[in-house]
């Protein structure tokens, strides 16, 4: 188990353990991404080996910058790996025959 998850059992009796719980922090990040300017529901966030993996496709480079800023604000102190792709806008080079 990674350190951030283990930390939830380190202390008891006040609000700190839940506030430090990495799963809840990721959940709150997802709520914020949906609620704020991005309206983003399509990006995946996973806890993996103590780090947070952020993956998915976003509509524009500006959206990616905004998203990463919010991620780093919400998950300050945690290791974040991101692999975010900007949606491609080229026309297809062939059609599918059905």
């Amino acid at each position: 188990m990674s350190d951030p998850v283990a930390s939830q059992t380190d202390a008891a009796g006040d609000a700190a353990p839940a506030a430090d719980n990495v799963e809840y922090r990721v959940a709150h990040l997802r709520e914020r991404l949906a609620a704020e300017e991005l309206g983003e529901l399509g990006v995946r966030t996973e806890v993996r080996a103590g780090a947070i993996l952020v993956t998915g496709t976003v509509p524009s480079a500006q959206c990616r910058d905004t998203l990463l800023r919010v991620v780093h604000e919400e998950l300050a102190g945690l290791t974040v790996h991101s692999d975010l792709v900007v949606a491609e806008t080229t026309r297809p080079d062939h059609a599918e025959e059905l």
Binding site: T57, A87, T89, R91, P92, H94, E96
Partner: peptide, 19 residues
């Protein structure tokens, strides 16, 4: 036939299906 044409899936501005 069903096609999921979500832009992140097709990775294009659109896809074309010939019927």
């Amino acid at each position: 036939r069903v096609r999921n044409v979500a832009q992140p899936v097709i990775r294009r501005a659109f896809n074309v299906y010939q019927l």
